[in-house]
Design a protein around this nucleic acid. Structure first.
Lengths: 158, 158
DNA sequence: CTTGCTGCAAAGTGTTTGCATACAT
DNA sequence: ATGTATGCAAACACTTTGCAGCAAG
């Protein structure tokens, strides 16, 4: 059994039980992997890391678990345009870096969570959302803002 | 042979020749399809429409052509998160609606090009890009800003 | 002991590629 | 004539699904 999720475990456990889901070893392993990284792992990367903790988890369980976690909003699922989904633990509102956007290297796929400008961005996005909601009668549920380019290292190699 | 691209044809033709590419019937058909719609078609939709104009084009030609057109910046390729790419003709800077962002219905996949708030958005995005470029030493090449939600019709059905 | 969870393998989806042929210039 | 463009089918990468057995509560 994984050692610790920090403050996350109890919360997750309750969340699971509340919906009639079971917090199995596979699921704990996957949550553990996500809680121990700041990177945006793909399903396959998660699978390989989880293997070290609980070697009998298969890929399909990883996918099924990630989908479940995304549904429960315990993880965010992102698409950075390289054909595979990437996952990031939702560390809750207590986390200072809760709100962030992404900077993605189109060469090495490095992803940076940045929190600069966030306040201004959030303000404008909220305003835009309100305006769009009114004008187009949409119910806006999420937005995506990503910057793509070449990171420091890749810029120089070119 | 397709009837007209409006002002686009000559431009495309020159652009093609300039790079040693050929403006074949299949490619013309695809450009024609794109020029006659305001929707964001998927490769398969383009394939079906192009079929009516030039019935011997296969899917792989559609994909290859779209990739080429995207490279030449004659079309934009978008990913709206439903697992298939969508394409939109680049109508050039003369087009008033040149700069726009997207509002996407997560239920029916309807896509709205909106141009409201664009000036403010572009201003903030530029500012953010500059800041990120400096702080993270990135060379930013593009950004994505999309709003997801339920459109007027789908909102009511739920 | 009930019901959800799992691994495995197979199927599914959108896209890309190898190759021999067809075609634009 | 030259080399690009094409259709076809097979390959591809990621993800999803059916099913029989397993295990959490």
């Amino acid at each position: 059994m994984p050692r610790s999720f920090g403050k996350g475990l109890g919360w997750c456990h309750g969340r699971f039980k509340g919906y009639g889901y079971r917090l199995t070893l596979s699921r704990q392993a996957i949550l553990d992997v996500l809680s121990k990284t700041s990177e945006h792992l793909s399903a396959e990367e998660i699978y390989h890391h989880a293997y070290k903790i609980h070697p009998s988890s298969g890929m399909s369980t990883v996918y099924r678990t990630l989908e479940l976690l995304a549904q429960l909003q315990l993880v965010y699922k992102f698409d950075f345009g390289d054909g595979r989904a990437r996952y990031e633990l939702n560390r809750g509102i207590e986390d200072k870096n809760h709100h962030h956007h992404h900077l993605i290297c189109i060469n090495c796929q490095r992803i940076i969570n940045y929190t600069d400008f966030i306040d201004e961005e959030v303000e404008l996005l909220n305003k835009t959302e309100k305006g769009l909601t009114k004008k187009y009668n949409f119910r806006i549920m999420k937005h995506i803002l990503q910057f793509y380019g070449l990171c420091e290292r890749c810029k120089e190699k070119k």
